[in-house]
Design a protein around this nucleic acid. Structure first.
Lengths: 171, 171
DNA sequence: CTTTTAGTTCGGCAAAAACCGAACTAAAAG
DNA sequence: CTTTTAGTTCGGTTTTTGCCGAACTAAAAG
């Protein structure tokens, strides 16, 4: 097996490994994950429709559907070269930033839920005239956790601005 | 509608809202999510098998299966009261810590993948004798990102030790 | 020893997810 | 105006997921 074959095998293995990761992590369909992995691996230049069909050995229709899906999620985009009808698909420039935003949103949602639960518990305590110490314990944990979530959000926001700075430097 | 009915309605709404969140966030089945939400809401005392069946209006078999699932994931556990055959299910004491561990693992996985991709790119550059500047750009982004991931992992670990300290204080 | 309780196991079924091939379309090339 | 290219759309099939009821089991109660 020569060098090129070795690299192509490595490529396939990497795509599979990344694919499995994205599938579980970002809740993408198997094929969407593989496509995204391929785009991530190839990077700057992007990949054409037919290259995806060939590399992943899947039907055109599936590629079409999943590319549309990824685009509608804002995770990928494409550019064209003058005098070339093909589309070159690549990961959105700010995909990483978007994903961080999603993570921040998610933590904020969790925060709100914890607040609601805390309010529910306060109500319960108010109704049952006997001051139930176990619910008090649960409640204080809620409140603690909200503080942690705030810290987490802060950290993610810092990370985001750091990444934005780097992206601007690279340009 | 009296106070009790109001609270029970609020409870159902909260369970549904939390359920939807867990379903998308933690990749749990719909019922697993609802059960987990119920346990989270009730807190310290825990909930019996039959209470779950009643509150969520689902079959015993589904509850059984999903409880086993959640237990095998280490997300819930149960205790028994002397002279009472029922099991009282509740969220694992260190579920939060476990989830943080999972998140750390996930970032570490992502880090490893980025390293592999970086190595792949280095190989590609080595093979193509012409020093391709676009791949270089991709590569430098890889390396930057790995640094960010490291910071993220560090933050999560800090958060974890903070939580562990709090848990020990509560005891 | 029989009955009840508390939960488990298993086969089945309905709905959703994921992919495919074949026919189609819109724009560029010839 | 016809053909080719590059991708889309749609109907159908296969797999997977998620729940259910009915029969079962193990342990405690009577």
């Amino acid at each position: 097996m020569d060098r090129k074959e070795q690299m192509s095998k490595l490529k396939k293995e990497l795509i599979e490994e990344m694919g499995v990761y994205f599938e579980s992590q970002d809740i993408l369909s198997p094929l969407s994950s593989r496509i995204f992995a391929l785009l991530a691996l190839v990077g700057y230049d992007g990949v054409t429709f037919d290259e995806i069909v060939e590399e992943l050995e899947v039907s055109k229709s599936s590629v079409s559907t999943n590319l549309q899906l990824l685009q509608s999620m804002g995770r990928i985009s494409y550019y064209t070269k003058p005098g070339d009808r093909k589309r070159y698909f690549k990961i959105s420039v700010n995909d990483m930033v978007n994903r961080l935003d999603d993570k921040i949103d998610s933590w904020q949602k969790e925060r709100k839920l914890h607040e609601k639960v805390a309010n529910y518990r306060k109500e319960i305590i108010a109704i049952s005239n006997k001051t139930n110490s176990e619910i008090q314990k649960d409640l204080s944990f809620n409140i603690h956790y909200i503080e942690f979530v705030d810290k987490m959000i802060e950290n993610l926001q810092k990370l985001k601005t750091n990444i934005l700075i780097t992206i601007n430097q690279e340009k």
